[in-house]
Design a binder for these strands. Sequence first.
DNA 1: AGCTTAACCTGAGAGC
DNA 2: TGCTCTCAGGTTAAGC
Length: 316
Amino acid sequence: MPELPEVEVVRSGIVSHALGRVIESVSVLDERSVRRSDGGSARFEALLPGLKIMDVARRGKYLWLLLGDSAGQLLDEALVVHLGMSGQVLFKTADFPPEKHLKIVLELGAAQESATQLRFIDQRIFGGMYIDTLVETTDSAGASVAAASRSELGAAVLPSSVAHIARDPLDPHFDVAAFRKKMLRTSSGIKRLLLDQSVISGVGNIYADEALWQAKLHYAKPARSVSAAPTRDLILAVQRVMEAALEAGGTSFDYLYVNVNGQSGYFDRSLNAYGQAGKPCKRCLANGISSIMVREPFMGRSSYRCPRCQRKPRGL
DNA sequence: AGCTTAACCTGAGAGC
DNA sequence: TGCTCTCAGGTTAAGC
């Protein structure tokens, strides 16, 4: 479910509710939600109590809590959160009844007039939380860099399980040239590249379709046939749609996506392509032309496009 | 090596 | 009412 804008809404919500607070106790209510964590729930529940939440970072759809010991020393392990298709993070007081799909509860040290539990809720259990070691990476930039110039050159400290994830389009060090290089090395359609988290991260089915609509590209157009200028347009479209969605608090179709206070985002009203099958293409309509949006299967999921301004490439 | 598909889960809605 | 089928914002492991 959640793509970059929704995950970023959650990240900033955790920052405002939990920064500087100490994890007092942990309950894992469903082992499957910590299946990616070494040692399972036993280690998960034993390791976290007493640790302080120092910061919350994100790359693409992954976010992680940086932890400190009682002396404020940063640990080399982080608490990673992935929302999968249906994960939620909510802050609630202990007296609030448990949600139907409540999976993990972190009790937080007292803070004034603020909820004391960080709750992880997940209907489909494709998401989860896990403890992971932080590693240094130089990313696709290439040569390893001196520690002093690290942030400037874009090296990063990431959980090891996130090291293979490319920078996302809102990252100041996102590299359009590297993206284009990968486009030229594949025989895949352009949408497959957009959804490949090791090529560009944070893009899911909604924002891929929105960006392709903005850039007037067909999802199956071979990536290597998209030249330099349209590639820049496409990346700009991804950035614009994600920034607008972030501004609107994300995209919510139902109760499955809400922010940490339980509120929906309202970007669904601004969608031009995703879920718009049977409705007129807004761009064509503005030009006085009638064209009806269609839904088609691609990569085992649905793609939405305008048959007139996102024409099928020849030979497909 | 690169690409495709199946599997992991629960629930909502459509059609019969 | 209740059954079956399809679909859903993601990722990974196994297959060709």
